[in-house]
Design a protein around this nucleic acid. Sequence first.
DNA 1: TCCTTCCGAAACGCAGTCGTATCGAAGCCG
DNA 2: CGGCTTCGATACGACTGCGTTTCGGAAGGA
Lengths: 224, 224
Amino acid sequence: MTETTQHPTPAEPGADAPCTGASGPGAPAARDGVRAPGRPRSERAEKAIIDAVIDLLAEESGVAGVSIEAVAARAGVGKTTIYRRWPNKEALIVHALATMKGPLPQPSGASVREDLLTLARGLRSERARKRIQCFWNVVGAAEKHPELYDRYRQDVIEPRREVFRDVLRRGVRTGEVRPDVDVEAAVAMLIGSLTGRFPTERQPDDFPDAVVDTLLRGIAAGAS
Amino acid sequence: MTETTQHPTPAEPGADAPCTGASGPGAPAARDGVRAPGRPRSERAEKAIIDAVIDLLAEESGVAGVSIEAVAARAGVGKTTIYRRWPNKEALIVHALATMKGPLPQPSGASVREDLLTLARGLRSERARKRIQCFWNVVGAAEKHPELYDRYRQDVIEPRREVFRDVLRRGVRTGEVRPDVDVEAAVAMLIGSLTGRFPTERQPDDFPDAVVDTLLRGIAAGAS
DNA sequence: TCCTTCCGAAACGCAGTCGTATCGAAGCCG
DNA sequence: CGGCTTCGATACGACTGCGTTTCGGAAGGA
């Protein structure tokens, strides 16, 4: 032990920007095809850790409710196994959130109404609900953990909003949507109405349909 | 000191349900016209405490970010002064939230569009922003503090939604709004779009106008 | 004036969390 | 088998927050 005990990163002799960049766990010393000596890191443990973080973030009361010890207990893992991969709590949460990117929804393109219905109903899926719940809690901590908020917004939320925008812009080209539509307002109305009151309040099953049709037709009398 | 040191509530001989009901601070022993002996409680301190709670709840990261010690420091008050009035942190926050009820907005009734614009623009006021910010954080902690969430929702949020509903229902009667409108969907679209993306993201100044007009006219081509 | 209550400040015991360190056991490779 | 690393468990010191208690002093009523 000459001077290597500063960071959990094991060997990795040169040019390793410390893993505080938080886009991934500390590499287990295998960069190229070079096999690292010793016991390899358990991929199973890593997945369990990330799942535990996401579950806790969605269920517990915000970022402050996610403690390393709770994560370790829930994942059935020692704290050592966590700190060997991430330098601190914030990096762990950032990485866990990044894994929620997942595949974007792909609307069929049959019609604007069909596409919006698909997207709106998709916001009720198990995975989407968890994503929205995490968003609530991350937003709540936005002032204290701005990096967390920015990254989650950019990586997870914004791409999904962009899918909504694309549907509307395509509708303008096909003539289904009036050309002077305010895309930002319309997207905010769709997403905001479907994600705004989640936690305990139940919405009727056809709420997405009602929102989409209200948006399309408007509420003023005299419109078709 | 015979047996009275169990509760901060000072004298108050009989039939005092302890103040844990959390709808108000422990009364300083003056119930009817009976003046309590000794120095009366400082009203100034009480206001400072409640303001501090609301500010912290809006700015800090959620309910967990509001600590009694932070409240005391921010209000320039000793912790004793807090615990003499409320039995614990949750009761304090519940009471502080209840004070945000304030007066409801009173739309003019000139037209549905005017009323909705007034209400929508009102959501950008200083006070409304703080209310919304608190709502974010209270919702985030809904699973851990359900009483907090329920009470805030009932006392503060729901009455304001009801004002929106009233405007729409009146519009149906006057013929300004189509009779088959889904009031819940329309209200959710208005409020959700205007409160959904607050914290750091800025909206253009005419965003409430865009939302109201989009809601009224719809986005489908062919409508007026 | 005397008496009661409230005031702010400080310290306490207790519990929870962070990040580190240490332990014996186990997995993988040569 | 022997060297390497990771594994889960446990304990540690430092810190923070809660809710209580004690303290000297101030404010108001009788």
